[in-house]
Design a binder for these strands. Structure first.
Length: 573
DNA sequence: GCCGTTTTCGGCCCGACTGTTTTCAGTCG
């Protein structure tokens, strides 16, 4: 039973309790559900070790209920509640504009139990007959249904950032905004983004908001007011623009950056200190403004250090900020090399020289060329001869060009048994060896764990490439006991890649954090297959930051000689 | 039902916008 499924049951219990007008319990279940959802360790594992109470917002009662779910696959309490309202609330409330109350009303009036019933009722025009609802509600539900069906598609961080950049530039050029910033999950660097949040300060909010709604990229205006405007872009991405007074900019930026869980904690903290926090200001008991112009002030007046957006997930960052123990998160400027670059020797689109030049433009001191090795099923890899010729070509390039130092490397394939497909005598000629799984994805967890452990025991392997193999929104990570893998990585001195390809971001943030806790080191690789892909490093850094990584944890913050010296086989011969 | 700078009882985030209805409940973020 996956964490998400356990969370789903808890969420539904929350909704059902809310409908029974039970006070406060719904929120308790909601928080526990969020906590389960956010936890990177499988709850089954926690249940086994009787460690469920370690989860924030899970106490005795809910802990026992999670035990029951893990043991039996369902929850009696949930079934009992559901007997009174046999409705798929989880599904129904995913439709925009339908909450628990509406779902209940629709069930009582029309017998709507699930999305199919809802669609039928809407199409037959029965929803407008329900007291308190009208034609607009019905239309809204029909639209919400179409969107819920069209999957809850989230945009990959990189492409969301690109879209945001375009909008921001257009708004800035209008001259209507004194200040403008991205907020929301994009500012936190979350790997996928549901919608774009923009925050602005404007002297003429009505005009600014109209200007925004009329941008050519906008396909549909969802709502428009002087303080908040929501639109949908041609690509389907929703964008919310909030306009606040300059004196509230910091409070608003804090508020709209989230996460929701982080904000709730902050507001509680404010309350506990006799203050109140909203998107306009932090105020004291007499309603006097204590902070609001900038984020630092808001955190400071709550007794906290300013918390980098990437950490704002209610995963211990508030406690760390209180104790002045926040990590010194790694910065993009500290990444001095890219250790995972492909060229047209394998499946890249650019030649050696162009990739090197692109690295120079990005301000890097070195790159490692790590083309694919030709593997029976991999098209476009280099074979042994080609690889050795490439080593020579790289040698010549290094002689002729001062500037970016190029390391010779390979992205070798890990065979089913944990051996590499490149002969050891060839690997010894290389500066950097990345080992990646490109086949046999569906082994048992035990077999995959052994396979990865075995390859890391190999002293010629410097880096485990895209360790979990996931493709966001497309392919789940393969099964392995990640804590075992991370422990072995630490023990053998094998770096774990944070692959910065937008669809990979692998390791992902929660696993980065676990890897660091196990004592492992990271390597940031762009996995560039074209010159402009080196810029992906930016989101690799964001991901590492979300996993609490500091520069000292990341191999390629080191100058090249120091980097080579950290290899298991030592520095240069 | 959870939690603790109001600490084992008594609190529990808050505001904008919409739709349908005349004063607000529901939803969302």
């Amino acid at each position: 039973m996956k964490n998400r499924e356990v969370a789903r049951i808890l969420y539904e219990v929350a909704s059902l309790l809310e409908l029974e007008d039970v006070p406060f319990k719904p929120r308790a279940y909601q928080r526990a559900a969020r906590s389960v959802e956010a936890c990177s360790t499988p709850v089954e594992e926690l249940a086994e070790g009787d460690r469920l109470r370690e989860l924030p917002d899970v106490g005795k009662a809910i802990g026992e209920k999670i035990q029951e779910i893990v043991r039996t696959g369902s929850l009696r309490y949930h079934q009992e509640l559901k007997a009174k309202l046999p409705v798929d609330l989880f599904e129904l409330t995913r439709v925009q504009g339908v909450g628990a109350k509406t779902a209940k009303q629709l069930y009582e009036a029309l017998g709507v139990r699930n999305l199919l019933d809802l669609e039928r009722a809407a199409k037959e025009g029965r929803i407008r007959e329900v007291p308190g609802m009208g034609a607009k509600t019905e239309r809204r539900i029909l639209k919400g249904l179409a969107e819920a069906r069209g999957t809850d598609r989230r945009e990959l961080l990189w492409y969301a950032m690109t879209a945001m950049e375009l909008l921001r530039r257009a708004l800035e050029d209008s001259g209507l905004f004194a200040q403008l910033s991205a907020a929301g999950s994009l500012r936190r660097g979350v790997e996928t983004v549901g919608d774009l949040d923009l925050l602005g300060v404007s002297e003429r909010p009505e005009k600014a908001s109209r200007f925004f709604a009329c941008l050519p990229e906008v396909e549909e205006v969802l709502m428009q007011g002087p303080k908040r405007t929501s639109v949908k872009l041609a690509g389907g991405l929703q964008v919310d623009l909030r306009i606040v007074p300059a004196s509230s900019y910091g409070a608003a930026l804090q508020y709209f950056t989230g996460s929701k869980a982080h904000n709730i904690r902050l507001r509680e903290r404010a309350g506990a200190r006799g203050m109140k926090l909203n998107e306009y200001a932090l105020t004291d008991a007499e309603d006097r403004v204590v902070a609001g112009k900038d984020e630092e002030g808001v955190y400071r007046e709550l007794g906290l250090l300013w918390i980098p957006p990437e950490l704002r997930e209610d995963q211990g960052e508030i406690q760390a900020a209180e104790r002045h123990e926040l990590p010194q998160l790694v910065e993009r400027s500290e990444i001095v090399g890219d250790l995972h670059v492909h060229t047209d020797w394998s499946d890249g689109t650019a030649d050696l020289e162009s990739m090197t030049e692109a690295a120079r433009v990005e301000g890097l001191a070195y790159i490692a060329v790590t083309d694919h090795f030709r593997f029976s099923t991999t098209v476009g890899g280099v074979n042994t001869d080609e690889l050795l010729r490439q080593v020579d070509a790289i040698g010549e390039l290094n002689e002729s060009s001062a500037g970016v130092r190029v390391l010779a490397g390979i992205e070798a394939n890990i065979q089913r048994n944990g051996d590499l497909d490149v002969p050891a005598r060839v690997l010894r000629r290389l500066d950097i060896v990345i080992a990646s799984v490109h086949s046999h994805f569906r082994l048992s967890s035990a077999e995959m764990t052994r396979r990865l452990e075995r390859v890391m025991d190999n002293e010629l392997v410097d880096v485990l490439g895209h360790p979990t193999g996931r493709l966001i929104g497309e392919r789940p990570p393969y099964d392995a006991d990640w804590d075992e893998v991370f422990y072995r990585a630490a023990k053998t001195g094998t770096a774990l890649e944070v692959n910065a390809n937008p669809q990979r971001l692998d390791l992902g943030a929660p696993l980065v954090r676990r890897a660091l806790e196990a004592g492992a080191r990271l390597m940031l690789g762009s996995d560039a297959h074209a010159t402009d892909h080196i810029r992906f490093l930016e989101i690799g850094v964001r991901t590492a930051r979300r996993g609490w990584a500091e520069a000292k944890h990341v191999l390629n913050t080191l100058p090249v000689d120091a980097l080579l010296a950290t290899r298991k086989r030592g520095g240069r011969e």
